[in-house]
Computed example of a mutant assay.
Amino acid sequence: MKEFNIKNLVRKNIRELQPYLSFRDLNEFKNPVFLDANESAFGELNRYPDSTQKKLKQKLSGLKGISADQIAVGNGSDELIDLIIKAFCEPKEDSILMMNPSFAMYGFYALVNGNKVQLLDLDENFEISKAEFLKTTNENQPKVFFLCSPNNPTGNSVEDIEFYIRNFNGIVVVDEAYIEFSDKKSCINMLGKYPNLIVLQTFSKAWGMAGARVGAAYSSAEIIALINTIKAPYNVNSLSLNRILEAVDQKDTVEQNIKNTLAEMSWLNKELRCLKGVKKIYPSDANFFLVEFEEVEKAYAKLLENEILTSKRSPKIPGCIRINAGSRKENIRLIETLKTIA
């Protein structure tokens, strides 16, 4: 990796942009009267939320072992993906690089922002070819590389992930939406080593807070300041912030839920392997399996007929359906339905 200078990567108009700053959130008051933001004086949610999310960042700082100024909070990881592309990629000029198959929203937000999408095709084991990676990056010079690990929809983690961070001359975003289900270490511990690294995590999966729509980005203070400059002033609402703050204080409950999910994954794996219509179950470090069926259309139709919603990945991944672990009752219903396929 060449010497990293963020100013050489950030869009010129973004470098010159001044962030929206809330005077209220940047100062401490003992007994304030708020007449500055044209809010109603009445109602339960009449005040704007903290635009800086100070309390949550302080809690995450202790939880992750990094400084609060290395954390940005978003309206789900989706908002953060969008902001990263907006910060670094010139519309109609720059491109992003992403694994194929992987989380579709990387490409979606790139296209919305007028950027090209370079695809790095995975091999038959859903792994990246290092030679192909080096060839693609040297020829196309993408600005941002999205690495989903564990990967959605394949379930496997990226092997030797540091190689890709070290050999990419741009911003590397490691999306760890499913990291809590994996025994792999988070890339957050590499932030001090790689100034071009951004790690995304979410409260939607292991934390069981998908409805709150809260995600977090971890990076250098310089990159986080850039993200905070271009985000919407009050991008995370008060209800979501309060629920996430409560959840962070109930880490034992979250850890038990993770154990329960992994137990269901183990049960589901065993039961799926006993079904004659199942051709292959791919290894997973997440809370879902990518399952290959002998007759995928018939399997998917039978599940849908019984109001069991799964994610059909065929024909892009031939014969495959992505199935996440539910409760034991839900998982039994899944297996019993699949048993009825003639």
Rank of each mutant, 00 (worst) to 15 (best):
Q53T: 11
M265H: 10
N13D: 15
V296D: 09
T229P: 00
E124W: 06
G170D: 02
G43Q: 05
L303W: 05
G107C: 13
V254K: 14
T202V: 07
S314T: 10
K64R: 13
L45A: 09
N31Q: 06
N242W: 00
R11K: 10
I171M: 03
T253W: 08
E222C: 13
Y282E: 09
R328W: 07
E246K: 11
N196Y: 03
K92A: 12
E93Y: 06
T261Q: 13
K143L: 12
S61I: 01
K130P: 04
S67G: 07
P150V: 13
Q18V: 02
N113S: 15
N260V: 10
L122W: 04
L56P: 00
E295K: 11
K312S: 09
D160S: 08
T340S: 15
V10W: 03
K57P: 03
L56G: 02
L268G: 12
S77Q: 09
E295F: 03
S284N: 06
V248F: 04
E255L: 13
M265W: 13
R47G: 08
S157M: 04
M98I: 13
P153Y: 07
N75C: 07
N196W: 05
I317H: 04
L262T: 12
D249M: 11
I161P: 05
F133H: 06
N13E: 14
L83Q: 12
M1Y: 04
T310Y: 02
E292H: 05
L60I: 01
L197K: 05
L309C: 07
L197E: 01
A72R: 02
E294C: 06
E132M: 07
C320D: 09
D123P: 01
D175K: 00
T154M: 08
E79R: 10
Q201T: 09
E90D: 11
F133Q: 10
W267Y: 15
N152F: 14
E295H: 05
A206G: 15
T340W: 02
I332K: 09
N167F: 04
K130F: 13
K251W: 11
